[in-house]
Amino acid sequence: MSEDHRPLAIFLMGPTASGKTALACSLADRFPVKLISVDSALVYRGLDIGSAKPDAATLARYPHELIDIRDPSQPYSAAEFVGDAREAMDRVAESGKVPLLVGGTGLYFRALQRGLSELPEADPAVRERIAAEGAQLGWAALHARMAAVDPAAGERIRPGDAQRIQRALEVFELTGRPISELQRQPRQPFPWRVLKLALLPDDRARLHERIARRFEQMIAEGFLDEVRALRARGDLRADLPAIRAVGYRQAWEFLGGEGDATNFRDRGIYATRQLAKRQVTWLRSELDARTFDPDRCDPLPEASMALELFLGMPKTSRQKLPGGI
C-alpha cells in the first residue's frame, strides 16, 4: 500500500450545545492547529448572541477563520463555504500548522470533503422571479413544483427551506435536468487526509436541558435586543438565510407581533432541539468518525490521544507544547 502524502486536517463535529468550541480551544492549547469555523450562522456579522458565537475574548485568544465574513443581507452558500474553507486550509498549512475545522453544519462538512456537483452558476433574473413566486404562492407550493420534477429533492429538502428549493428550481430551469441527478455525478477526491472527531451525546434529555438553559441565557444576555437591531436596519427580510437561522427566525416573528414571550421561548427551544436531532442523525452516518459522549466523560484526553497519533507526535514532543498533557 502506497503511503498517503496528503496534508493533514481535523474535523471536530457535534450538535449544538455539545461543547465543540471549548474542546477545540483546549486542543489548540496543546497542538499545532489553527481553527476554522464550520457554521452557517457564524459567518454573519451581527448574529452573535443567538448563534452562540464565541465572545471577543475567546476569539482574540483562539482566532477562528470564517467567522464574521458576511453581512446578514448577503446569502452564503455551501459552494462559497467550500471555496473559502479550502483557501483557509491552505493558509493554515502554509503557516506550518494543521487546520482544525470545528462546527455543526453537516452540509458544509459534507460539501467540503465529498465535493460539489458541477452545477450552473446562479442566474439573477431566474432567481429573482422564483423568489417572487415563493413570496406570492408560498414556498410549500414551490416545494410541490420541485418535487414533481425531482422526487429525490422533494424528499430531501424540507418545504420551508426556501434557499434550497429556489436553487433546485433554478437549476432545473437552466439545465432541464433535476439537481439530484447532477449531484450524483462523480466528483474530485478530497486532497486532505482527515481525522474526524465527533461529540455525540447519547442522553437526549441532558442535551435538551443544555439547549433550554443556553437559550434562556441568550435571552438574558440580550438576544431580543440583537434581533431588534437587525430589524431596525430596514434592509433585512424574513426569507434571508441569516434571518432563517434557528432562534433568529422565531425572534424575528415574535418581534413582528406573532405570539407572546413564552411562545417565543418555547418555539425557539423546540427549533433548536430539532436542529440538534438532525445534526445527531447526520453524525451517526459518519461511520469513519471517532465519537465521544461529552456527558459520560471529558473528551479532551481521548481526543488529545487521537491527535497525537494522527499528527505523528511523540508524547515527549507534545508535552513541550503550551498546555501539554
Rank of each mutant, 00 (worst) to 15 (best):
E221S: 13
E121Y: 08
L116P: 06
D39W: 06
I165M: 00
E87L: 03
L42E: 13
E128N: 11
L137T: 14
K34C: 11
P54Y: 04
L207C: 09
A52S: 15
I211D: 09
A261F: 04
E258V: 06
D39Q: 13
I243E: 00
A9P: 13
P159N: 15
G96K: 09
L311G: 12
L66H: 14
F254R: 00
L101F: 12
P72A: 12
A78F: 03
S117P: 13
R30T: 08
A306R: 01
L230P: 02
E80D: 08
G19N: 08
G324Q: 06
A88G: 08
Y62C: 13
S117I: 09
L200N: 15
A9G: 12
L42V: 14
R214D: 11
K315S: 07
L195W: 10
P186C: 15
L27T: 06
L275T: 06
D260I: 03
V102M: 08
V102N: 02
P299G: 14
P201R: 15
P63S: 05
Q136G: 07
P72R: 10
G103R: 00
G234R: 08
T262Y: 02
R244L: 00
P72G: 09
K53C: 11
Y270P: 02
I165D: 00
M313R: 10
V102Q: 12
A289Y: 09
E209T: 15
I211K: 03
T21N: 01
A28L: 12
C297K: 06
A245S: 15
Q185I: 13
F109G: 01
L112H: 00
E173N: 14
P15M: 08
A52Y: 11
V38H: 08
Y248W: 12
A93N: 13
A79Q: 09
D260R: 01
M313W: 06
Q136L: 11
S117C: 13
P7F: 08
V98F: 13
S304I: 08
P54H: 06
G268L: 00
T316A: 01
W282Q: 05
F172H: 14
R233L: 01
Q250L: 02
P151L: 05
P314H: 05
S317Y: 14
M146E: 14
P201Y: 15
I10S: 10
K315A: 10
K315T: 13
A238Q: 01
E155A: 15
L35V: 02
G257W: 02
L27H: 01
G324Y: 09
L100C: 15
E3R: 09
E94G: 15
L255F: 01
D202C: 07
R61K: 09
D293M: 05
E121P: 10
F223G: 01
R114G: 08
P151W: 10
V280P: 04
Q217K: 11
R61Y: 14
R237I: 00
D84C: 05
L116R: 04
M146T: 14
G134Q: 11
R110F: 04
R267C: 10
A220D: 14
R167I: 02
D293V: 11
V171S: 04
D84N: 09
A271K: 00
V126H: 13
R214A: 06
A198I: 07
E65S: 07
V98W: 13
A153L: 00
A131I: 03
D295R: 14
I211S: 04
L197Y: 07
L199K: 10
A251P: 03
G106W: 12
R284H: 13
S37Y: 10
R278E: 15
